[in-house]
Computed example of a mutant assay.
Amino acid sequence: MTGKHRIIFALAIAVLLSACVTSGAKISQDAEAALIQRQNSAVTVEKLVFHPLKTGDVLPLELGATDPVLLVDNEYAFVKAFALPQWNGSYMIKVASFRVGSPIDPAILYPTVVFLDEAFKETRRSSPQQFVYRREGLNTGDGLHATFFFNEANRGDRYLILASRRQLPEGNTRLSGYTVNMTPITVPVGAGAVTWVVPTSAANHNSPMAASASGRVSLEVQAYQPMRIEPAGKSGQ
């Protein structure tokens, strides 16, 4: 079996399994409907409950209809709010948003991460370009990843808000790969017949991944030691 045939076979299995998985389009539509329904109960930043983070935390989370709604960038969004660790040296926070839906009809939550000081004033925020899409194959373990660093320059950051984006950011994530063409074949069996749907060819595709207001996310807090850059000529002394 050639490499291309293996890909076609694997994707054919994925197509059959995806019949039992909620499509990305459905997930996106349901999340949007839930968000619209909750807009009248939107809160202000001061009313959010900020869950404390500590170094070593690894938090798999679901962001969606059970979370508060906040107005972010003039659009409503489901949010999770966290209090950053008490300053005790440099650390970093890894934020990930994982692909959901079926292998051939996925969706993803495009995150916005906002940092606030102790007076709830915004100090910085993420840009779409900070999130890098990492692919792990035909599963829902792949997604968008970004790392945020905390050191002396931004030790005044006290809070983190993780919000969903309802619109595809510029340069949005695209799902590249193969589209499998399936052909029904009827095989006589005894007095009857059985119809099998088999892959016959595959073609490259490149399409945007649907944006969802809800999804699977994670936060990971780690200590780190900033790299010290020695002036030229000082190394080895």
Rank of each mutant, 00 (worst) to 15 (best):
L61A: 07
K26L: 10
D142H: 11
F50D: 05
E152H: 13
R99I: 15
V189P: 03
S28P: 07
A203S: 15
F78N: 08
R216P: 10
K121C: 11
W87P: 01
G177Y: 04
A119S: 15
G56D: 08
T179F: 10
R165Q: 14
L11W: 07
N74E: 13
F50V: 05
S218Y: 02
L138V: 14
V194S: 01
A193C: 02
L35P: 05
D157Q: 05
Q39P: 02
Q222T: 14
T140I: 05
V194P: 00
L61K: 13
N154T: 04
T140Y: 00
P226H: 06
N206Q: 03
K47S: 12
W87Y: 13
S164C: 04
P188N: 04
P60G: 01
E220C: 01
V100M: 15
V113W: 02
N206G: 03
R38P: 05
G64F: 10
F9C: 08
L84N: 05
Q225Y: 07
D142M: 05
L219E: 12
Y110V: 00
R166T: 11
A81V: 10
L116V: 06
A202F: 04
R135V: 06
G236P: 04
K234P: 02
I27P: 04
H51W: 15
P128V: 01
N74K: 14
M1C: 00
Q129C: 01
F131T: 09
